[in-house]
Amino acid sequence: MWRYTLKRMLVAVPMLLGISLLTFVLMRVTPGNYLDTIRMDPQFSKETIRHYEQLYQLDKPLAQQYIRWIYNLLHFELGYSFHYNVPVHKIIGERVWNTFVLSLSAFLFTWCIAIPLGIGAALNRNRPVDRAVQFFSYIALSFPGFFLAMIFLFWASQTGILPLGGMHSPDYDRLGMGGKIVDLLKHLVIPTRALSVGSIAALQRLMRGNMLEVLGQRYILTARAKGLPEGRVVYHHALRNAVNPLITLLGYEFSSLLSGAALIEIICSWPGLGSLMLTAVRSKDVYLVMASMLMGSILFMVGNLLADIALAKVDPRIRYD
């Protein structure tokens, strides 16, 4: 197991290098650079713009810029953001955390709702309960998350029960510890819902399908035949096998949530990585984009690795050595 983990981590290194190189090249071959915004400002002279070029080292050859960035990366430095004029890690640290909080919340919410819902639907197959769940799942699946976010925000503005976007209230810094937690939870409700509705619908259908498949197996018949109580048949024998394929999904779901939250973050003014990256890409803040890409990729890879390891732990048939 350890050897496998180590191998996966080693494979990740050239992959990350490739991603960073691709990002860098894409950012630099597309026309324009960070200083274009300043160029269109009547109050900046040519000399000042040249001065900035030197400061940001935009006057050096491309290869040299990239190698320098890699060199700094090996010293755990992610470079400077042009736009904010501070080291990149000072900006993205908090943003990564905020995105993580939102993703974790959406992830927990999705799984806590979808799994029981799927089981329930499977056990009540073709009864009105099941029909209703499937009907609403279809509807939920066909709504894009960002649209739901807007509907929720509009609803919140009409009722005034929930805060309208953002992560904290304006007076957050004056609240006590308990108040801060409640405040954060209240702000989490809308983006979490918007992110989860689609995944709940999808995951619930998967769970239902798996469960039905397992319930049709001979060993379930055997279990029932030998007179085990129904609860034990379902939760001990069937569930364990039905959930296995979903474990693979777990890591993937989580990592895709991290990257997929961007739109919802922007709509809900959630101060996460996604909204930061969008502005960075648009203003051509190269090193900030590269660092955010790198963070996103690492989170993605770690998510997948964890899923694979978890699968090996749960399913004795899987061995990686």
Partner: peptide, 20 residues
């Protein structure tokens, strides 16, 4: 004086209408 950073103009408008 508190300045909230609200990237979406429409969300900002809703926040004004709602009273934040």
């Amino acid at each position: 004086i508190i300045y909230l950073i609200v990237p979406g103009v429409d969300v900002g408008l809703l926040k004004f209408m709602e009273g934040t």
